[in-house]
Design a protein around this nucleic acid. Structure first.
Lengths: 157, 157
DNA sequence: GAAAAAAGTGAAACCGGGTTTCACTACCTC
DNA sequence: GAGGTAGTGAAACCCGGTTTCACTTTTTTC
């Protein structure tokens, strides 16, 4: 569990992140630097981190991401069917789209209405903390590459 | 994605499953026998299978579940945060609830409206094949066990 | 500012849920 | 009943974390 002080600090001033250890800050900068809407896998974060600091260990990246997630600075996104988790800088809640062909992930600006969630929780007698919505299919590029027209053009059939 | 032919077969005659190899049938019966709304992990299926047929191998169970899923007879459910997949007899699409404390999974009879899904797909220029909605929180039992009242009653505080 | 405590670190071992391979057997089909 | 195909169990493998260990750095405390 997180020391209480950090929890408080997080609640009071989520933007004013606490002093982070050198490496933790590095990792945070990498995730932030990737840009809003960019989704990194832990291995990618590690790769970027090594460019800056070749002797950094994988476990440090792992721990940094875990900590940053605890602090609410970074979101950890687990999508059904994806074998690994994605990390992005924390922001407003939203849904995700994942291309089942190329694995690309994109933010989708939508959350199921509170009203509905409450109703479902009530109906099933459960307490709902979190709602995860994910869309799965083909991104524009992959869809085009697979459409019959494209196939015809390529294969002559 | 599932070959279209199989999807059709599933829609046209879900009950008329093709002849299944002895072990595949056994696995299917186990999943069906568990009852609608019951969610089995592969290890559980294996365990049950061994009761009937002690020499069965894990890989057979694995392959049977994969095959049954391909055939559209069994649904494979992957929930964000759950480390393993759940299997249940195929039925109408629906959402899932997962208790983050005890891991229990329950069906939730709801699917996001088609209209919305189409709109989101259009807006993002992607082709959506599948929409996964999962609710996460505490089941009734776990919620009760954790409520301040319950804690007070137990701890006298 | 030195001693003591706490936090962070990298390498490497470990873990769990699949997934694949291999040598073999059972089942069909003609 | 010979030849091809599908199914089988054991075991090896894979991968994305997760944990442990011995050690270094930082921070606190007097």
């Amino acid at each position: 569990m997180l020391p209480l002080v950090l929890q408080w600090r997080k609640m009071i001033a989520p933007a004013a992140e606490p002093r982070l250890a050198r490496n933790y800050r590095l990792i945070y900068d990498i995730v932030r630097g990737a840009g809003l809407g960019r989704h990194l896998v832990m291995a990618e974060v590690y790769e970027y981190a090594r460019r800056e600091q070749p002797r950094i260990g994988f476990s440090t990246v792992y721990r940094a991401l875990a900590r940053l997630h605890e602090l609410g600075l970074v979101s950890e996104i687990r999508l059904p069917g994806a074998d690994s988790a994605y990390y992005e800088v924390a922001g407003k809640p939203h849904a995700h789209f994942r291309c089942e062909r190329c694995g690309a992930v994109a933010d989708v600006d939508y959350v199921p209405p509170q009203r509905l969630v409450r109703e479902l929780g009530r109906r099933h007698g459960v307490e709902i903390d979190d709602v995860l919505l994910s869309l799965h299919g083909r991104c524009a590029t992959c869809a085009a590459a697979e459409s019959p027209a494209a196939r015809g053009a390529l294969a002559g059939t």
